[in-house]
């Protein structure tokens, strides 16, 4: 039997924690399972920047990645390992829905697990939140933890 992979999105929020907790329970139940834990830094290559921002961009990116590791991802990876579940930690820049779906395809995941983030602003009401877009575009089943 081949290994089962779950892609889990976390963002340091309680919703992300709940998604991870759910994924760990499922992983234990399945047995031979790896969790791909991903923290996405929202980023668009089509945003507008000043020359100074461009000049410092590489440095900022490194800082963002190291901060994501130290504050959110590494503790979550460590906690998951302690629970005896295989885990891979990933930090990526981009669109959350696109990145999670891409990871699911790359690792041939069985499902994507994310926490539900409440609909906040007008923008999300109009364009749909991250979870909405993920559900609409994902190639594999998506589990949303309330």
């Amino acid at each position: 039997m081949t290994e089962t992979v779950f892609v889990v999105g976390i963002d340091g929020s309680d919703a992300g924690e709940r998604a991870l907790a759910f994924a760990k329970d499922r992983a234990k139940a399945v047995g031979d399972c790896t969790i791909v834990l991903c923290y996405v830094i929202e980023w668009s290559p089509f945003s507008f920047q000043t020359p100074e921002e461009n000049e410092m961009r590489h440095k900022r990116r490194e800082e963002e990645i190291s901060m994501a590791h130290s504050r959110v991802l590494d503790p979550a990876v460590a906690a998951t390992m302690n629970d005896g579940v295989n885990v891979i930690g990933v930090v990526k820049h981009g669109d959350v829905a696109e990145i999670l779906d891409g990871l699911a395809k790359k690792h041939e995941a069985a499902q994507i697990i994310v926490g539900r983030v409440g609909v906040r602003g007008l923008r999300e009401r109009v364009f749909g939140g991250v979870t909405g877009r993920l559900v609409a575009s994902a190639a594999v089943p998506v589990t949303i933890i309330p």
């Binding site: 830094i41 980023w43 290559p45 089509f46 945003s47 507008f48 920047q49 000043t50 020359p51 461009n54 961009r57 590489h58 990116r61 963002e64 990645i65 990526k92 820049h93 981009g94 891409g102």
Partner: peptide, 25 residues
């Protein structure tokens, strides 16, 4: 459009950004 951009470089200054920054000048 980013067709040739390496996905691993996401978060770096893109061609689009360099172009639009120059254009705004």
């Amino acid at each position: 459009k980013g067709d040739y951009s390496d996905p691993d470089d996401a978060g770096e200054v893109s061609h689009f950004q360099a172009l639009t920054t120059a254009l705004s000048g």
